[in-house]
Design a binder for these strands. Structure first.
Length: 286
DNA sequence: AAGAACTTCAACCGCCAACGT
DNA sequence: GACGTTGGCGGTTGAAGTTCT
């Protein structure tokens, strides 16, 4: 579900129909893809492996609603495996890797979308102190959270801490050295060694067991059905209350269809096209 | 109001282990 | 055992949103 930032770090469900991207952007997916996907970063690994003709048609960059729908559909059909195969048969001009990533980090029905709860934040701190940058391992202990999300959270946290330290140092020394380049500030601390430099004082007072108990209260999410999850019943801790979104409804309807029914449905392209047309019309009405 | 600075996070890259042939 | 394929993982990037000046 797309979430709208209502203030820094706070998100609410998107009232528009944008699904896969940050909201309110003027650029269409194709424009963004042009700007980003096909530009600077070449997929060297792929280029190395793939025939030039095949490499040309591989899409990169942000996913469109239709691609998301297609992916959900085909994952429902074939399961969460054989990503390369799935990428091929789905007709998505994406790599299997890209499909998997999109599914795991965004489309999976068990995912929470929203800020980390204080309990989750504390658990991340504890587990990172224990395991270091083993993000996937940490993520397994936080139902509904992805390694990517935790990694991003951690980097943000580290950046804040670094800035606080710099701020303190600067305020006691030279105010003129306060400006850092955006990229340096944003990306320069990505490789902080595991367990180093983190002040764990804020975790003090909580044992792992206590944290686990707190988490357990909101832990049932991983056992929820898509219906329950989307309805928000298992995710009371979310900052943004889940609200029905057209595309989630479409995905959900896909989720409900029996495999047998799916195999009898013949015209997926028509389905996607009609869905997208409807969304275009609806969005024009608003 | 406008532009600069900063923040967030989706998506990509490169590496590597597991697995099949 | 060598090789190719697949998918998982951690690190990195940069577009777009937000806040500040």
């Amino acid at each position: 579900m797309a979430l709208v930032p209502i203030k820094a770090g706070l998100w609410q469900p998107d009232a528009s129909h944008s699904f896969s991207h940050k909201v309110g952007k003027a650029a269409t997916p194709s424009e963004k893809e042009r700007d980003r996907g096909s530009g600077h970063r070449q997929n060297r690994e792929e280029s190395r492996r793939m025939a030039p003709a095949a490499a040309k048609t591989t899409r990169k960059g942000p996913w469109t609603e239709q691609e998301d729908l297609q992916l959900v559909w085909f994952v429902r059909l074939f399961g969460e495996r054989r990503w390369d195969f799935l990428a091929k048969v789905s007709g998505l001009n994406r790599t299997g890797k890209s499909c998997r990533l999109r599914w795991v980090n965004y489309l999976h029905p068990g995912l929470k979308h929203g800020r980390m709860t204080p309990q989750e934040e504390r658990l991340v701190l504890q587990l990172h102190a224990k395991w270091g940058n083993r993000w996937s391992r940490i993520a397994r202990k936080l139902p509904g959270r992805t390694d990517n999300e935790i990694k991003n959270y951690w980097r943000t946290l580290m950046r804040k801490k670094a800035q606080e330290r710099n701020g303190n140092a600067i305020s006691s020394s030279s105010p003129s050295s306060s400006s850092t380049s955006s990229n340096a500030a944003s990306h320069g601390i990505g490789s902080i060694p595991a367990g180093n430099s983190l002040d764990l004082s804020e975790v003090k007072g909580y044992t792992t067991d206590q944290i686990w108990n707190e988490i357990a209260a909101s832990d049932s999410v991983s056992n929820l059905t898509f219906e329950e999850y989307k309805g928000g019943s298992g995710c009371s801790c979310m900052v943004g209350t889940p609200v029905a979104s057209p595309i989630w409804e479409a995905c959900e309807s896909l989720w409900r269809i029996d495999t047998e029914d799916m195999t009898t449905m013949t015209s997926m392209p028509d389905f996607f096209e009609s869905y997208c047309s409807k969304q275009r019309i609806d969005s024009q009405k608003h």
